[in-house]
Computed example of a mutant assay.
Amino acid sequence: MTVLHWVGLLALAAFAGAVVPFQSAINANLGRGLGHPLWATLASLLVSIIVLLPVIVALRLPLPNMAFISKAPLWMWAGGAFGVCFISLALMLLPKLGASGFIALAMAGQILASLLLDHFGLFGLVERQLTTSRALGALLLISGVALIQFSGAQPQGD
């Protein structure tokens, strides 16, 4: 992989992370407007389908492998449930914790879960042992999360 390709992948990963607080803040407002956060979760997922289907058609992707669908273990379908969980919790918690607080705490959870997934090679991932340096890196990131969340800036109103 070339350096340019690697930098492009890093930029895309950073962009994927950057859209999360925007999605959460917009959905929190949508939830208030619709009367409950779960309505906003449903709306968000419906918009996702509406946006994704034309892309699938434009790319002329073949239909999914129906034989695989019938044989896939149940855990493979949990991603959608985790998505609902994240979206719903984001739009309930973001107004209370603030965008930086929610994202920082969500990131701490992502770091810890990612270390476990990597260490044990769960769900088909390549095993990446939890070394001292990886644990120290996670600790530094989580320390940064704590500084963001508990640095004295108190919410106004509420």
Score class of each variant (00 low, 15 high):
T2N: 14
W6F: 14
V7G: 02
V7E: 01
G8K: 07
G8C: 10
L10H: 05
A13E: 06
A14V: 13
A14T: 08
V19F: 04
P21Q: 03
F22W: 10
F22S: 01
F22R: 00
N27C: 01
N29A: 09
A40G: 15
A40S: 15
S44Y: 08
S48W: 10
V57C: 03
A58M: 11
R60H: 13
L61G: 02
L61Y: 05
P62Y: 06
L63H: 06
M66Q: 12
M66K: 10
P73F: 05
L74V: 14
W77G: 12
F82M: 12
S88H: 14
L93A: 15
L93N: 08
L94T: 15
G98K: 05
G101R: 09
I103F: 02
A104R: 07
A106F: 14
A108L: 11
Q110K: 03
A113H: 00
S114Y: 01
S114V: 05
H119E: 07
L122Q: 03
F123I: 03
G124V: 08
L130N: 02
L130W: 04
G137C: 13
G137H: 05
L139H: 02
L139K: 00
I142A: 08
L147G: 10
I148Y: 02
G152K: 10
A153E: 14
A153H: 13
Q154K: 15
Q154R: 14
Q156D: 11
G157A: 10
